[in-house]
Nucleic acid binder design. Structure first.
Lengths: 187, 187
DNA sequence: TTCCATTCTTGACCTTTGTAAAAAAAAATC
DNA sequence: GATTTTTTTTTACAAAGGTCAAGAATGGAA
């Protein structure tokens, strides 16, 4: 995905505004295993995934809980850093060698005050993320782990191929052993 | 809480912009049991709670799952309606006789295109809701039901006094019977 | 107050999921 | 391609939470 496709998919910007925004975006690559977002840091950048897959997790009582996966076209962000200038909850780790577009948020926040189109881009960006987060919250509350696994299989079959089982089990809120049992059931 | 306190707590608006916004806000009251937001409707208003308490729930397989409580100062909104002009997942019901401020969203969306301060108010509003939703998502993933109950007790002791147990159990993702047992344990 | 309806608690029993450890399979490294 | 290392599956047992049903407590309404 190109950066234009990604930006346009959020909210259509007139060309002058888009150029202003793109001035602060650059392409970066990292290897599998790289930690892009650190739980104990106030992050100053957000990233759009051009190619690759990532997972966000919190570390609680010596085990990691995965609560989000991101792939091509998704935004990698520490919401706490971006919105409240505070340390976030999560580490975000690359699960594959990846290419990303980096946007420095200091510059973005200045543009919010001077360019109404970019302010609305920022509004719609937050709104889209909100809808996605709400969806995850509700689907998590609904149905059994088995149903949620089947749902995930249908919605993101590639995810299950690209990500190891332990992370997916954690995401579904069950243990790897339980997920393995669910998969073993026929029908 | 006054409407000015609520609006200012989201994002500070210059007086002219605030007056523009307030032109579309009016005060309404409803009785306990009133359904403010309907799952099968595209809602055209959002509400700020002046006095009262509400719950949002989805109906799945003949039982209701509560996934949010709102009280004084909170915003009652169908995100799907507001953001995507689509039917939402949830009914939102008043659990007490309540007073609210109603904001018609058609007018709000027009203002986003013409007033940069209001566009930024809308941005920050979505961002605040996003942070809250993310917090709920993560805390739901963390720890056992007992721990989450204790957490809720500490964070919102009034909620537990004002809301009946079944709703709270559903919110925590367990049955009323289990929650009752957790409460019965000493220590 | 008394009665009725709703909400909360308790008990017996059952199902689902977790834990720990080992075996099997797959992937990575030499 | 053989050998490590990592990941997934399987087994046995334990723990947490669910279901059903009955009884106690609470709260309105007449």
């Amino acid at each position: 995905m190109t950066i234009d496709e990604i930006l346009d998919s959020i909210y259509f910007l007139p060309d002058t505004s888009k150029q202003l925004l793109k001035r602060h975006i650059s392409k970066v690559t990292f290897k599998k295993g790289h930690i892009l977002i650190h739980a104990d840091k106030i992050e100053k950048s957000i990233y759009f995934i051009q190619k690759g897959i990532v997972r966000a997790y919190t570390t609680a009582a010596d085990n990691q809980i995965t609560f989000w996966f991101g792939k091509e076209g998704d935004t990698v962000i520490s919401m706490k850093s971006y919105i409240q200038d505070q340390k976030g909850y999560e580490d975000i780790e690359l699960l594959e060698n990846s290419a990303l577009y980096e946007l420095k948020t200091d510059h973005l926040k200045e543009l919010f005050n001077t360019d109404i189109h970019i302010a609305n881009w920022g509004r719609v960006f937050a709104e889209q993320e909100l809808i996605k987060t709400e969806e995850r919250l509700i689907s998590r509350q609904l149905g059994t782990a088995k149903e949620r696994y089947k749902q995930l299989l249908k919605q993101s079959p590639d995810l299950i191929k690209r990500v190891q089982l332990g992370h997916i089990a954690s995401y579904l809120g069950i243990t790897q052993v339980s997920l393995s049992r669910i998969r073993a059931e026929k029908e």
